[in-house]
Write a protein that binds this DNA or RNA. Structure first.
Lengths: 339, 339
DNA sequence: CCGCTTATGCTCAAAATAAGTATAACTGGC
DNA sequence: GCCAGTTATACTTATTTTGAGCATAAGCGG
């Protein structure tokens, strides 16, 4: 063959490799889950063995990018994807440490996919991991997470005070306030990626180190273990993108039903919404909203698994997609815990 | 070199070429504009010579995808991009007719970029073209466009009636109603891509033919000239994606100011919003909205170019990005023309 | 000064939202 | 069987946001 070993191993600096990667999201036991697969050999740089299901795009076998993605996910997890949407294409230099060793430039097309509770098996070499294990600062369901006030807050302040230039310090402080909802700013649950990137720049998560960036604050070695479980390569960034997109999307499209079983109580639905949003919702208003939008219809069946008064089971009204294309679960996020 | 001619010319069926393409949008004279560049040689399949500025991604020269895009746009149009965001990555087989002749699989990362009126020069080999020349059915500023009622409506009906299967016919009718806002459905100005794709499938636009798909209705040869000006390859699809995204985004992020000069009257701002949205807005409510959101501040200057009472000039308040990160020009689209 | 145009301030009703109160219907413990 | 605890569901109330329009202000050309 004309192909040289050099090219096959991808050490041609002009080489590009397109990878397809998927953030598979499900909700189980009131917790949002993401599917991780064990990487063969692991990524010595991040000390992580887990990453998102992914594989190279094959222009011969794959008619579309999405088809390729479905194939890889099926192969690696045994799951036949339902809902999937393209998220973002990641192409920054050195996304993958392998590139420094002469590997090809890795360009990754990331997808968000939603998996129904009922399709939730744990396949070989794959596991459903709690979202918030990787982003502990994103879960505000029982008030401001401890990690924000205890670790992130003070360490970010140190980072903000580091520059010699007064204006730079002000800019950093401002950015911290907006992304983390400090001062008189409100916490915006959609800014997942911005928060991740801020922590990255501030050197508060493990990826900063493994990517060979200068650490802002050298005293933080174990802080990494506090700031969430790491994935290989930049997969945690992809995950942050997926999370932000999903939190935004459930507000204006009825995608949350892609995660629910066929029949559910309104409270189960609310729990799922809360799990994704990372915040509590007002129960009565939530059900009024869902009802008024015509998103669900009663089945007549009753569930007595609730622990209190039995609840009626509902199902998603597929018609709404037709009737009111732009409906979703607009949630008024309440950040303060119930007293 | 180990590279074979075969590989260099890209006729290896496993080859992939990443292209970066940009939809540069501006507003001028109350019309939305998009920058088109002349393609060397033209695209014989579509009989179009124009397309979006684009170029191959170079993993050596380009540190990020966006950087590569900025380089190409600068080279082809002389414009230094300001605001730019990634849109979507297009990778379907045969996006580019060249692929049938053994060319590499073209994967294109599309961007939406906003250009300020003041930066609006017409560069060599490039031209600002009216959006609605390519999507005549999208402009509802003076009521339902003639093309929808006269051509598209009836032709789509024919397409819907074509299948033998009753259920298929119903599905098609339903889809037409939702995407084009017929029946009791409302016109949703964001569904630009869905409308484009429906017309594509129905064989009502030139791309259907050039892509080698079966034509649903062979009597439509000149209808193509009615259904908007074509671009090379799938660039009109990228443009539809950009348009839809922009229409959605101005409602919740203050991106519209990326298109405005530093100082403007509120009516100029409204005109720009209307040009993008393709619909008229209620004037008093628009200014109340903009004022209440704190998006603008008065400059004290007065413009007497208005043709009536002089208007005060305003400027964008950059602070809002900090204070209210999620604000935009929420526009209640009024589709019916003023009587 | 008149008729035309656009700017701007203000009102008013309808709808949507946020935050409750009140009551209903189940469970388990005794 | 009754009570405390738990969840479900109906309804109320105040506030805010929207959609639509009236009225007046301030320029222009004649």
């Amino acid at each position: 063959m004309a192909k040289t070993t050099k090219e096959q191993s991808g050490s041609d600096s002009r080489a590009i490799a397109i990878e397809l990667s998927a953030a598979l999201v499900a909700v189980h036991d009131e917790a949002p889950k993401i599917l991780l697969v064990r990487d063969q050999g692991g990524d010595s740089a991040t000390h992580s063995q887990f990453g998102l299901p992914c594989g190279p795009f094959d222009p011969v076998a794959h008619r579309t990018l999405e088809e390729g993605l479905r194939t890889w996910v099926g192969e690696q997890s045994g799951i036949q994807l339902g809902y999937a949407e393209q998220l973002y294409t990641f192409g920054d230099r050195f996304r993958d440490p392998q590139e420094r060793k002469g590997g090809p430039r890795p360009v990754s097309v990331g997808y968000l996919a939603l998996v129904r509770q009922t399709d939730l098996r744990s396949p070989e070499n794959a596991d459903w991991s709690d979202w918030y294990r990787h982003f502990p600062w994103e879960d505000w369901r029982s008030g401001p997470p401890a990690i924000v006030s205890q670790v992130i807050g003070s360490e970010l302040k140190a980072w903000a005070d580091a520059p010699d230039n007064r204006a730079d310090r002000a800019r950093r402080r401002e950015r911290i306030d907006t992304t983390f909802g400090l001062g008189d700013m409100a916490w915006d649950n959609e800014r997942v990626l911005e928060r991740y990137e801020l922590l990255y720049e501030a050197g508060l998560i493990a990826e900063t180190v493994t990517d060979g960036r200068e650490r802002a604050n050298p005293g933080l070695v174990q802080a990494h273990t506090l700031t969430g479980a790491v994935l290989i390569k930049d997969h945690r960034r992809i995950m942050a993108t997926a999370m932000g997109r999903l939190r935004a999307k459930i507000k204006y499209r009825p995608v949350i039903f892609e995660l629910m079983p066929p029949n559910f109580t309104l409270y189960q639905l609310q729990r799922a919404a809360e799990a994704l949003a990372g915040a509590r919702l007002h129960k009565q208003n939530f059900r009024r909203l869902v009802a008024n939008e015509g998103l669900v219809e009663a089945t007549g069946q009753i569930s007595s698994q609730t622990g209190g008064r039995p609840a009626e089971l509902f199902r998603f009204r597929r018609d709404v997609v037709r009737e009111r294309p732009a409906s979703g679960v607009r949630l008024s996020v309440r950040v303060k815990p119930k007293k």
